[in-house]
Design a protein around this nucleic acid. Structure first.
Length: 232
DNA sequence: ACATTAACACCAC
DNA sequence: GTGGTGTTAATGT
């Protein structure tokens, strides 16, 4: 999964493709897959820092923090990605919360000691760790660029462009994203409220550019979306 | 002008 | 009933 996504974005593929949609990084095949409901918390703010590294096997997981009642999205991870890898370098941020962003999310929970051992016996894993960090960095830089340059409606459109290409499946000329994010979650990523996301999405729907319901989102005309955004 | 927020009705699960 | 969506009115910058 990681290899595919990286290739699509022009990074070299470091790691062999994980088998099947519910497959994981190969050293951790044997670990049980934990299925999560939307909104289910993996670790919570304030609790002692998690001594696990997690692999997302389905759906999306987000990391967030709270500042006087406001929830701020720190980063989010998709299928095939590792999170909480900072603990490898002794960086524990206790104020962070991790939760499933979509229904049908699943993770594997890898004890830190297992992960360290796996790195020793499988050097390719270290490369994968670096790939993950690199991915996380570019995703965060992209979000920063969005905040710096775009208006709120443009941020929604721009997020849609990158999300569809990263997480969507190409079907003919269209792109299908499943499961769909709620408007509230998209707002969290794009840095705006759920009402704004709803109105932008409906405008795009009326223009015939997208089609969506609670379960999926289809982009009918990605080129039209790209024309609406200052950058891709 | 643009954006956020609150409010309310409606719908799906 | 809860959570998600569609819409509008009020409010702030």
């Amino acid at each position: 999964m990681i290899a595919m996504n990286l290739q699509r974005e022009g990074f070299p593929a470091h790691f062999p493709k994980a088998p099947g949609p519910s497959g994981g990084a190969s050293p951790f095949e044997a670990l049980p897959e934990i299925t999560l409901k939307k909104g289910q918390v993996i670790f919570r703010e304030g609790s002692s820092s998690s001594q696990y590294i997690y692999l997302v096997t389905r759906g999306l997981v987000m990391i967030s923090s709270f500042h006087d009642g406001k929830e701020v999205l720190e980063d989010y991870y998709q299928e095939g990605e590792l999170f909480n890898i900072e603990i490898l370098f002794g960086q524990n941020r206790r104020e962070l919360t991790a939760e499933a962003m979509t229904q049908l999310s699943a993770i594997k929970k890898i004890p830190l000691s297992n992960f360290r051992w796996a790195i020793k016996t499988n050097p390719g894993l270290l490369e994968e760790v670096m790939s993950n960090l690199s991915c996380s960095l570019s995703r965060t830089q992209e979000r920063l660029r969005r905040f710096a340059l775009l208006s709120s409606t443009e941020r929604v459109v721009n997020f849609l462009i990158s999300h569809v290409q990263r997480s969507g499946k190409r079907v003919g000329l269209e792109w299908v994203v499943k499961p769909a994010l709620t408007h509230q979650k998209m707002g969290l990523i794009a840095g705006t409220g759920r009402q704004t996301v709803t109105t932008v999405l409906n405008k795009l729907r009326r223009a015939g550019i997208v089609h969506f319901n609670r379960n999926y989102l289809i982009v009918r005309d990605l080129e039209a979306l790209k024309k609406m955004s200052a950058f891709e």
